[in-house]
Write a protein that binds this DNA or RNA. Structure first.
Lengths: 126, 126
DNA sequence: TTGAACTCTCACATCCATGTGAGGGTCAAG
DNA sequence: CTTGACCCTCACATGGATGTGAGAGTTCAA
């Protein structure tokens, strides 16, 4: 499919799809007229990219991880074993991010729980 | 303490401390000569800011959360009850980020586990 | 043919987090 | 007084992610 269709199906603007290609996250083929041709699986790939960006990873980290998250049927395929050390590094970074976020989440929960009931009603009731 | 000392004690550059103030994350007093005066607790506040930035939150989200993470002795004090709805929203966003990262972490672990043993040795041995 | 829809590349712009330097004030020690 | 260390504001710069428009090519139905 072409870039407009991928954009509609994923909700991601064309400009960003070209940027992700520029960053090595997407690899569309080209038609003889120069148009990009994407695969059906690129719809999932783009969604995964958005999810990882939203989680705070940058495009360089995502470029490392993505090729190894591609699925063949139901199973994950290690398509780039040469990057195992990189994957471990990314894994460690993700683990630290999760720990940081979980620490903040716990602290936030304590604050929310400590709020006086009438404050909670006012804040959530409107 | 002044900005240079806070910078040394936290390892965070002065430029960033001024930026965090600009973004509403820090609120130093001013001496008559215009110099910033930070409190002892600002050392922990700055470390918390760095941790949240590293976890992918931006300064706007941190400005929402921070005032409610301040500690009085051992307990957390809800110093801004009017922001309870905001806190819930931030909490939800953090929860989604954690879920996204955990999904990627699991997928990454499967790829790492699936790598052939000799590839693992080569990647980690040198 | 024509026009609309779609696509291409390129370049500039914005915001964010961060880095650096200019120009100048403050103050304690010598 | 002078000096060095510290501080102030302001402005420009960088890289990343994102947004927008110019100029032009492609394709197909009317």
């Amino acid at each position: 499919m072409r870039i407009g269709e991928l954009s509609r199906r994923t909700g991601v603007h064309e400009r960003l799809l070209r940027y992700y290609e520029e960053q090595g996250l997407l690899h569309p083929r080209r038609s003889p007229n120069g148009y990009r041709e994407y695969d059906e699986e690129d719809v999932d790939t783009v969604r995964r990219i958005r999810s990882l960006l939203a989680a705070g990873l940058n495009t360089a980290a995502i470029a490392t991880i993505l090729p190894c998250l591609r699925e063949d049927g139901d199973r994950l395929v290690p398509t780039c074993p040469g990057l195992l050390a990189d994957l471990h590094r990314e894994r460690d970074r993700i683990t630290r991010s999760i720990a940081d976020l979980q620490t903040s989440l716990r602290a936030l929960d304590e604050v929310i729980a400590a709020a006086p009931p009438e404050v909670a009603r006012r804040a959530l009731g409107g």
